[in-house]
Amino acid sequence: MRQILIISISLLIFTACDIIPENEREKPSENLPTWKGQYVLLEDFTGVRCVNCPAAAEQIEVLKGVFGDKLIVVGLHPQTSAFNRPIGNPDSNGNNRDLSNAQAEEFREFFGIESLPKGIIMQKKELLEKDQFYSEVIQHYARNAIALLDVSANLTDSTVTITNSITFTDNYDGQGNTNLSLIIVEDSILVTQLTPDGVVQNYRQDHVFRKMATPIWGNQIAGSKIAKNSTFNYGGSATIAGEWKRNYLGVVAILFDNGTKEVIQAAYTHIIHK
């Protein structure tokens, strides 16, 4: 009886345990799958007082190196003051370094984000840590795109004029109406950032969410069922703020299912300043 007990316990212990030998811990990934037209949207919830956010930003830069312009990033700075109250003194130009805004805060509330950094990919309601970005991005990258989305934007004085054309390359059957939203983003904003090494002056923030050029959840352009080869054209405009740097602005266009909010297709264009 005693021997059976000892053997049973030993078996239980040793079968409930996987020890990975040193030479089997990792292997090079296969080459990137063939791209079939699907752009991947990554929304990075971040903040100037978020100590761990620079690490997530570094990871995103590495992914941009892997996926290039097929990965479209938007950096959202919610209004939660714990993460986004500006640090230190205003810069010499007196520019507004407060990157947070109420619209980014609405997105944070919708996705239920309570801590930063967090990533949302293709507007799926799944909060991701930086180490999970790659697995999720590559899954969407490998998908067949069912819509082509073209966007162009021109800036005259303070007004951005945006034009979009959308073509569905396959039949589409969604849960809700099909909406298009437009986001103005800005690159190369120098701010004071809290990092693991302390407070860093002139830290560069890229693809920063500035404002929506549409309502938060866009405008409806079609219903939930769309036939193959259907095309839609949509125009929009927005006013930009004085302190934004005109040569560093862009527009992110997001075509999505308004029932699930999940992205069908995304596109990015630099705003041409005339």
Partner: peptide, 10 residues
């Protein structure tokens, strides 16, 4: 890009 071999039972 590397893929990790992860233990299922810890």
């Amino acid at each position: 890009v590397n893929v990790l071999n992860l233990p299922a039972n810890v």
